[in-house]
Design a protein around this nucleic acid. Structure first.
Lengths: 238, 238
DNA sequence: ATTTTTGTTAACGTTAGGTTAAATGCTTAA
DNA sequence: TTAAGCATTTAACCTAACGTTAACAAAAAT
């Protein structure tokens, strides 16, 4: 016996494209439910349980972002892939803090989609602790793109982050204004909790502080013996 | 609402058999146009668009093979199923290099036909998705024609690309401004992911960078350990 | 006061990537 | 069949990126 197929909710208003994509995914051992607009998509989402959603962004009545927000209200961890028009770029996506797991420009190569689906499902299944792999964050005046590993301050040139810098900052951002325990970062990022990894982490905290100095409302505080706290002052400010 | 019915052109000179077959297919959700000989078949083919053709081979005036050739001149991808007499065997068919998608001996089981039709339509639709391979891209001031494998900068002479150069650039373009994972290119283009193919890919990246140098707004960035990113600056610029 | 924890910088080793050139493989045309 | 002309791989060498560790300073806890 095989393992049970992963279930995908596909919301796409173009019927031809929808069918073709559905068939293609079905052929690749996914159980696909197709909805032709946001309303229907939400209904189907409520009535069933899925492993992943693929949402077209541009749809009449209810666009993909809005639908995603509703879906995330019900399940904040479900992976979502957006299909966007080629003309739509980062800037647009930035506006919507929905937390996409990935997005693809239409038209796209079907094998690329398959690759991404598998990568996401793989990632989710190995992520023991259910934290969403949200990869975009607003941190004061910074924007962190954790997938492309860069940190942008206002309109300046993005700062490239190393994998460790990136993961650490992301982890802090996920706990914004809250304690991010030392042990958590060491376990999740360094996969080992000892004197040296701990010192290594401190080095990375120093690096991040350097980057974040540009915005004086953002800082990383230490909670002695416990961990760190990424604080953003006056977020809902004057 | 379902997707629109598939349209079938059926060319069959035996009126009884033709009608029966047409009705049977109609009952199974196909839109069937019946022509009673090759001439009529060709006329109807020209005036409408179909998803599939079913051609009797043995017909007066214009046989099925000849008709198929004419049809293929107009549309080289349309699926064709031939209905042949039982006595006619492979040898005969071989002579005609028409590119049949399938052929069936008369008399045949109607369910078999149905099955084959569905299989063919299914196959074609996913093929078309797989090479919904967009093959033309605007990359800054470059134009990539990925089918003819050349890259044009403004009005200059097109640069010829080798197959690998072409596929790699195309893959990058499909992910414009986004991460194109190393692993993806290696899997898709090199069909193997090891140290040497990986180094080979790096060589190709270097080649592409050389071509792309002409436009300083276009560059291929590396994301250490992850892959590459084709960035185009100031696309929606002042 | 003294120990422990944290902050920070610098040095180091390792690995990934950048690039060029040579070697190999493939196709084609003489 | 061989040689020319490609495309592609492999090799070689170099630089950049990363992460760890060490060293020392500062802060916090005891």
């Amino acid at each position: 016996m095989e393992t049970v197929n992963k279930k995908i909710l596909l919301v796409e208003d173009d019927p031809n494209f929808g069918i073709v994509l559905k068939d293609y995914l079905s052929m690749n051992d996914f159980d696909v439910t197709l909805a032709k607009n946001g309303m229907e998509g939400y209904e189907k989402f409520r009535k069933d349980s899925f492993d992943l959603c693929i949402l077209d962004v541009m749809m009449p009545y209810k666009d993909g972002f809005t639908l995603a927000k509703e879906i995330r209200e019900k399940d904040e961890n479900i992976p979502i892939i957006f299909l966007t028009a080629k003309t739509m770029k980062e800037d647009v996506l930035k506006g919507y803090k929905v937390g996409a797991d990935d997005y693809l420009n239409k038209p796209f190569d079907s094998e690329v989609l398959l690759f991404k689906i598998k990568a996401i499902i793989q990632r989710k299944s190995t992520e023991s602790l259910a934290d969403s792999k949200q990869f975009e964050f607003e941190i004061g005046n910074f924007h962190l793109n954790s997938k492309l590993r860069f940190l942008t301050y206002k309109d300046e040139e993005p700062i490239k982050l190393s994998p460790k810098e990136n993961e650490l900052l992301r982890l802090l951002a996920l706990h914004e204004n809250d304690l991010m325990p030392r042990e958590l970062a060491l376990t999740k990022i360094w996969r080992d909790d000892n004197y040296f990894t701990s010192r290594s982490m401190d080095v990375y905290i120093a690096k991040l502080r350097k980057y974040l100095k540009k915005d004086e409302d953002v800082e990383i505080l230490n909670i002695h013996g416990e961990g760190f706290r990424l604080v953003v002052k006056s977020e809902a400010d004057s």
